[in-house]
Design a protein around this nucleic acid. Sequence first.
DNA 1: TCGGATAGGCGCCCA
DNA 2: TGGGCGCTTATCCGA
Lengths: 242, 242
Amino acid sequence: MDLVEFAASIKAALNSNLSVVFACNCVVNYSGRAESYLPSGDRIVIIKPDKTLIIHQSNGSNPVNYMKADTNHSIITGKGGVILKSTNLKESMHTEVQKVHFFHAHLLNDTEKIRIVGTERDMANHLVENPSLVSKDFKPLSTEEHTKYGFIDVFGYDANNNLVVVECKRYVGNLNAVTQLRRYVEKIKKAKGLTNVKGVLACPRISPNALKMLTDWGFEFVSLKPPRYLERFDKHQRKLDF
Amino acid sequence: MDLVEFAASIKAALNSNLSVVFACNCVVNYSGRAESYLPSGDRIVIIKPDKTLIIHQSNGSNPVNYMKADTNHSIITGKGGVILKSTNLKESMHTEVQKVHFFHAHLLNDTEKIRIVGTERDMANHLVENPSLVSKDFKPLSTEEHTKYGFIDVFGYDANNNLVVVECKRYVGNLNAVTQLRRYVEKIKKAKGLTNVKGVLACPRISPNALKMLTDWGFEFVSLKPPRYLERFDKHQRKLDF
DNA sequence: TCGGATAGGCGCCCA
DNA sequence: TGGGCGCTTATCCGA
């Protein structure tokens, strides 16, 4: 497809709610929350009906350049090529298109949303249903994250009526997770005027540095994996293989 | 393109280092770090030469499903449709393709890397070159992040030879930034046996809660925007408009 | 809209 | 390879 046809096609598509997909040789400049410059090369460009623009190089799962939804896109044709000019309130991007490898504009019908299981919230609910995973004497009170004491994953008491704060992490517990737990414990101590508040970090495993900081601060580590209710699908699928 | 042709085309493309781009109606199942299920709908699918797979719905800048680089992709054809089976060491994904709207496999030549200005590191360098932005008497020592005391943005002394630790944030300083700064200051105090170590959080602005915690801990807020050396490009481009 | 926190975060650097 | 952390983080959720 030549640049003249490209300019006409993309102009038409941008006035619809089609999804635009093309590959081209281009130069990209961005100015907004930062500044960036990407010299000439072949990339894949997608403009979605919500006016999100993403530009992908041939590696990695993140776009090299992008503009968020509700961006205005316009086409400027000149002797130097075609420029896709994308602007919103705080940012602007210029994509100088030199050569178009292919172009498609297609209506995508999709009303579905992804369902994900195995999040931090799922871990918290799992702990409330199985309090012995925290400790023999743990009595959970709530998973209400937005208490007035902060956004705490699980909250409860031990046998001596000491408050227990549990922070869940899906993956490896690190220094940040420990400081977060510490912040919650201190907040509750101050708010309630208590000196004995237990802190528990529940995650599949924990980094050595984080474990040291955790024990230095008198907190506990509980090994816990996120629940995986759908794990059967893989086996199920295998049965359906043709 | 019918499913038979699609199966043959994608098989051929997967054995090359072409970038594969297609739109289709599909159902996606994922199992790995979590589990997910995405019912039938039209999406854009990209498989890159590095074997990254991304699936995009018609909104937002992130893929709804994805597999990272170095994933193995295979095609299974059956009476129910074509299944793209993607697996790596810890994860698996099944994309059941029901209908193909378009398909492209293209060689993308791109050796360029993006250059970004206005990062946190740029802020740190800017402070070293303009120490008075921190305070009248600030004498910067280094921007070496990976000291044995932690990954500290800027490090220096004040007029009384007190150590000063500066943490930079590109955007709004929040509770997490303050706890991070606090962790660094405490680590240095302990390691060096000091009682007077200053902590400075440098960012464009700061949330009220974070400011309270910052001052409670005796730290300081310095208002600082990330430097934007390339800001002229936009004006420059405007001159070049045809 | 802002603030706080998660994410199947990703990607980069360094020990 | 794993830990630590920035990111034009994006996205969600509650106040």
